[in-house]
């Protein structure tokens, strides 16, 4: 490095930038390290876990993955999770679209009260109502089904709120013109309005997928067997089982398998993900 560059480096402005990066890298390290440590540990052997503190494994063993996949019915959990998450998203598409359109475009009695009642749902998470909802699901004879997991999430206050805003941004004249031309409101809604607010739907979809893929406590309560368990619950079952006792490499491999699908999705569609979360708030 020549003298000129060195001088530049130690100008106050540059020093400040360096300090910024120092702090940021330190924080990034704290937040990223747990994931990386899990990642590399999944490829270690049992003895490396307990006797080495090297970051990288001596060789990238796949034994723990083989072990985990032979014990956990991962494919079944994966299919259940996909059924739950995407089946729910499909149903939510209709429930939120109609409710949002009604709140955006129609006038009716008790509108404000109904909207407030809807928004209150944002404050009460499904895990809080596990006891009464478990009884309801039991009475419906739906225990241990993917449907049971989905039911409390079908009505989505967040989705209705988000789409109501979106529909309100479309000029009312467009709808009037379409209806004047003899189109039904439903035709207008599905052919014109929904395509116009596609970004809002994408945002909702990504947040809904993320939220439900990660959901744990309610699925844990209503599922009993491999038939309906989702990935997060499967992970917990594995962690509790004797097979995983002290086998932290296996447990980290299982954790990686559960977290990987969304992390990959996130890394590929990063921008869309972040923007979705910004427009929607926390819940789906």
């Amino acid at each position: 490095m020549d003298i000129l560059r060195m001088k530049q480096m130690f100008r106050p402005k540059t020093l400040q930038t360096l300090l910024y990066h120092g702090v940021l890298i330190f924080c990034a390290f704290l937040i990223v390290f747990p994931f990386l440590w899990m990642l590399t540990s999944a490829f270690k052997t049992q003895s490396e876990i307990f006797h080495d503190i090297k970051f990288f494994p001596r060789a990238f063993h796949l034994d723990s993955f083989r072990e985990v996949l032979s014990i956990i019915p991962f494919d079944k959990y994966f299919i259940n999770t996909v059924k739950f998450v995407f089946g729910l998203l499909f149903v939510q598409f209709f429930t939120i679209t109609f409710a949002a359109y009604a709140f955006a475009r129609f006038r009716f009695p008790l509108k404000d009260l109904l909207f407030t009642l809807l928004l209150l749902q944002l404050m009460i998470a499904p895990q809080t109502l596990v006891v009464p909802n478990y009884i309801i699901i039991k009475n419906l004879k739906l225990l241990d089904t993917v449907t049971a997991i989905s039911l409390p999430y079908v009505a989505s206050a967040m989705g209705v709120f988000l789409l109501r805003q979106a529909f309100r941004s479309i000029p009312a004249e467009m709808e009037e013109a379409a209806v004047m031309d003899g189109a039904s409101i439903e035709y207008y809604l599905f052919k014109i309005a929904i395509p116009l607010v596609k970004p809002s739907y994408t945002a909702f979809a990504l947040v809904s997928i993320n939220f439900h893929w990660n959901e744990f406590f309610w699925p844990l309560i209503v599922t009993d067997t491999v038939k309906s368990r989702v990935l997060t619950v499967g992970l917990a079952m594995f962690a509790e089982s004797s097979e995983s006792a002290a086998a932290w490499n296996d447990l980290m491999a299982a954790t990686l398998l559960v977290a990987a699908p969304l992390v990959l999705l996130f890394l590929v569609f990063q921008k869309a993900f972040v923007e979705s979360f910004m427009t929607t708030g926390l819940k789906a």
Binding site: C27, A28, I31, V32, P34, F35, W37, M38, S41, N210, W213, N214, E215, F216, L231, T232, V233, L235, A236, A239, W248, L251, M252, A254, T255, V258, A259, L262, V263, L265, F266, L267, Q270, F273, V274, F277
Partner: peptide, 21 residues
Amino acid sequence: TAFFYPTVIPMAAASMIWLYL
């Protein structure tokens, strides 16, 4: 990205990772 990614990690997975740490 580094700060945001835990948002997409299931709390169940996060618990396992931290239990290990």
